[in-house]
């Protein structure tokens, strides 16, 4: 005869408390393994230095004509690099989730009176905080190499708002990618697509310098409106309808990521 354990359905206050506990766990892990944060910051910084110092002179001239140069290109590329930091952090989230799923800790949590959603929420909020910290570091490096934003406090607030939103969207997507992966190695490779998308957008070069087929894709993919909104906010350029499209993409990606992650987690945690 087998005994079945029936846990009470947690109330909303319990869900919140459990999420805070799981967030604390995620933050502890981040502090204990600073190498992961350094790695997440390291890749965008390497790309920033590469594109500014190695390719910047040529790309600056190609983008800005005779007036264009390395100084202009730093300002052009920095928002794209900031977004790359978000995509890079998503990879870290997928790895953390896959580690939890394969290490057996979830089985332990199932024996406790913990709100199921709290486990994933902890990962997401922890990753959000880690990414925002990484973004600040990357902006610091960008300023050191010549990035000169002319945004006021309100624009900076809006820029961080849009960055937090896209981080939330990509984090939920990467949580789902981490859950769908059979191993940690697979989880580290799956979000690579998110790392590649900024390249096929307006992050490094204007979309009108791309071949027609590629330009069409670049103009309608999620990273381009976010990059253009960020560029407009930080450098005072025209934003147009990019902000609305960026927010719409963020909402759509968050919902897709959230529901996909939840259904995968419920399926995997139930057996």
């Amino acid at each position: 005869m087998t005994a079945t354990l029936t846990l009470p359905t947690p109330s909303k206050s319990y869900v919140l408390a459990d999420s805070v506990t799981m967030l604390r766990r995620s933050i502890r892990r981040i502090i204990r393994y600073p190498s992961m944060t350094l790695l997440l910051v390291g890749m965008p910084v390497v790309f920033l230095l590469l594109f500014v110092y190695v390719f910047g002179g040529t790309l600056g001239a190609g983008i800005g004509g005779a007036s264009g140069g390395r100084a202009e290109y730093v300002n052009y590329v920095a928002p794209g690099i900031i977004l790359m930091t978000v995509a890079s952090s998503a990879q870290g989230t997928a790895i953390s989730v896959a580690m939890d799923m394969t290490a057996g800790i979830i089985a332990r949590f199932r024996t406790m009176a913990i709100a199921r959603s709290a486990v994933l929420t902890g990962h997401v909020i922890g990753s959000l905080l880690q990414t925002m910290f990484s973004i600040v570091l990357v902006i610091g490096v960008a300023v050191a190499v010549g990035f000169r934003p002319n945004a006021g406090p309100l624009e900076w607030l809006a820029a961080f708002g849009i960055l937090a939103f896209i981080t939330l969207a990509l984090t939920w997507l990467s949580v789902a990618m981490g859950l769908v992966s059979k191993s940690v190695e697979t989880a580290s490779n799956t979000p690579m697509i998110l790392m590649l998308l900024p390249f096929v957008g307006s992050a490094f070069v204007p979309t009108d310098s791309l071949p027609t087929a590629l330009r069409w894709f670049a103009e309608y993919q999620p990273f381009t409106p976010v990059t253009e909104t960020l560029r407009g906010l930080l450098l005072g350029g025209p934003i147009g309808n990019n902000a609305v499209i960026a927010v719409a993409w963020c909402v759509a990606l968050t919902l897709v990521g959230y529901f996909w992650a939840m259904s995968l987690f419920n399926r995997r945690a139930s057996h």
Binding site: F55, T58, L59, G62, I63, F204, V205
Partner: peptide, 13 residues
Amino acid sequence: LMFVYIFGGAFDV
């Protein structure tokens, strides 16, 4: 592919 199709149009060599 990346350098030819994505950056190639912006590079002036």
